[in-house]
Write a protein that binds this DNA or RNA. Structure first.
Length: 186
DNA sequence: CCAACGATGGTCT
DNA sequence: GACCATCGTTGGC
């Protein structure tokens, strides 16, 4: 079942947790979301939107349920789901997936056979799924990338976010307990 | 094992 | 000109 706007309009931290166990679908490729991070508009210096709108972060200030894709370190892309109220600038970063379908194509793009290394990081999963700036600012309800419901009710753990210089003390990273496809394990 | 580092280019000050 | 929500490799132990 595809998830609709009611799902995306819940508060950002709740959405970041609710996304765990759901399926990300893009064409023939599918993966279960196992790790996310929340980025907030208030008291969060690590958030791209924390210093107001810029050309890059404009999707964040739009309605919830849209993609926000950006280039990081000149070579990788990160996929976010815009959340919160329109105009605030909040989002959820998708940090890791458990590959479900289209694994051969993911292996080819990632140049590895090991399933634990296909989507276990924000730059890895966009590479495996072929997500680039072409997929920026697209609706997850109407568009080519969609979120499907799942019966999974995962056990969730929280920690600080990864790779930040500002806002690193906030516990806004969420992941499925014991899942071997989360980032940073190998 | 794991800490350090280089690749690489857009974005913002 | 500095910074970066990363990753794979290298080189030390």
């Amino acid at each position: 079942m595809i998830l609709r706007s009611k799902f995306f309009n819940q508060p950002t931290i709740e959405l970041a947790k609710a996304l765990l166990g759901k399926q990300l679908v893009f064409g023939e490729l599918r993966g279960i979301i196992v790790e996310t991070e929340a980025y907030l508009y208030r008291d969060d210096p690590g958030c791209h939107a924390s210093r107001g709108p810029t050309p890059r972060n404009t999707p964040m200030f739009g309605p919830a349920g849209y993609t926000y894709v950006y280039l990081i370190y000149g070579m990788y892309h990160c996929l976010n789901i815009v959340s919160g109220k329109e105009g605030e600038g909040e989002a959820v970063l998708i940090r890791a997936l458990e590959p479900v379908q289209g694994i051969e194509l993911m292996q080819k793009r990632r140049k590895t056979k090991k399933t634990e290394n296909l989507c276990s990081g924000p730059g890895k999963l966009t590479q495996a799924f072929g997500i680039t700036l072409k997929q920026n600012n697209l609706s997850l309800i109407d568009g080519p990338i969609q979120i499907y419901n799942n019966r999974i009710k995962p056990e969730i753990e929280a920690s600080t976010r990864i790779g930040l210089s500002a806002g690193k003390e906030l516990e806004l990273r969420f992941y499925i307990k014991g899942n071997r496809f989360v980032s940073g394990l190998n």
